Simulated scan of single mutants.
Amino acid sequence: MVKTVLCYGDSLTWGYDADTIGRHAFEDRWPSVLQEALGDQARVIAEGLNGRTTAFDDHLADCDRNGARVLPTILQTHAPLDLVVILLGTNDMKPIVAGSAFAACQGIARLVRLVRGHAWPFDYEVPEILIVAPPVICETANAPFAASFPGGVEESSKLGTLYRDLADELACGFFDGASVAVTTPLDGIHLDAENTRALGRGLEPIVRMMLGL
């Protein structure tokens, strides 16, 4: 039976391209690379939104970026699911949102609880959950981005350890995005085409293992 994977994330999943201030080609986005690697054994759903947080409001946003508020609707939309991959936390580093790695970790825990406590239709089974720590924010000369993420370099560097411990505590899978991808100094936040592809390639082995493929 074909497995279904939901990739729940922010602009790193959407495919924001800091070079063109647009969107990476479809085939370069990491969910697309993961789909290509898994072939007809799985269906990969890309659910990325620029600016999405784990569980916090962004009152400057033009749409609902609170990941906890939107997630139940998305789960219901795409059910049944075999695996939910959560790649969030970078936007939580903004002081106007939350401003700390600890807060982002709490937000991820909230998302895990939402998946496991969801009222799945038709007695569908609860999917496995893979927590992915985003690549670390880097220094940038881009003034607006640097001003939006003061302290982000230091705080985001804590996400890998915090998320790994949380995954152990909650019996989720874990992958450290910083182990295969680095952010671009063009804005300090996003991934160039090669690094977003690398993220998709890096995720393939653990996704295969968690799906039993």
Rank of each mutant, 00 (worst) to 15 (best):
A147T: 13
T90Y: 06
V84Q: 01
L87G: 04
E204R: 10
I108V: 15
S148G: 13
Y8I: 03
A68T: 10
D62Y: 09
D58F: 12
L71P: 05
T196G: 02
V180T: 12
D192S: 08
T196K: 04
P95E: 01
N142F: 12
H190M: 09
V207W: 08
A55M: 05
P72D: 05
T90E: 02
V84P: 00
C172M: 00
M93E: 04
P134A: 12
L114S: 07
V182M: 14
L199S: 03
L191R: 03
L88P: 01
C63S: 14
P127H: 09
L211N: 03
D19H: 15
R69W: 08
C7R: 02
L49T: 09
N91A: 06
A181F: 04
A104W: 01
D62H: 10
V182E: 14
D57G: 07
F56M: 14
P121L: 07
L83M: 07
A193T: 06
A143H: 08
R113D: 15
L166P: 02
P185F: 10
T4W: 01
N195S: 13
I108R: 04
A25K: 15
I21K: 13
T184E: 11
V5A: 04
D62N: 12
R113I: 00
G51C: 13
V182Q: 13
G151S: 06
G117L: 11
G107I: 04
E139Y: 14
I189D: 00
T161Y: 12
V112G: 08
L6T: 04
M93A: 05
W120L: 08
A133R: 02
R29S: 09
L211M: 08
I96Q: 14
M1R: 12
